[in-house]
Amino acid sequence: MSEKTAAPASPLNQLFAVYEQAEAKAAALAEQAVGSNVFAELLATTATNAMALAGLANAVVDRGVRLTRVAARADVTGLARQLARTEDKLERLLQEVHELSDRLAVPDFPPDDAPPARPARAARSAAPRNGATVRTPR
């Protein structure tokens, strides 16, 4: 992008202008280069190899740490994963409760002047006792 320069064309500004032109040409050439098949192949292979090496290095370090009887990264990740699974189960349960609550049309916070009757309980007692879901029309 060219910039409008208010300053007079001093030698320094001319130098900058020449540099900008060179940079624009370099940018175009670089974009052409990264769009080539050779670069794409190089990038794909390098990325795959680099990550494979990183994986090996991680495994070696983890084994070293474990030998010292200290929890390694993989152990911590395993624990965090268990927590995540538990959270998943809780969330699914919560969503199920929300869904049932919506179906029963039970307000989360009944108004202060609401009658003492409990609609959820009334609906439940009216339902057949075979575990079928009560579907109250909205």
Binding site: A40, A44, A47, T48, A54, G55
Partner: peptide, 17 residues
């Protein structure tokens, strides 16, 4: 062009870390 080619192994790239 970069990641759609067969030489880009998404599994291996994603698994290391």
């Amino acid at each position: 062009q970069w990641v759609g080619r067969p030489s880009f192994d998404a599994d291996r790239v994603a698994t290391a870390h």
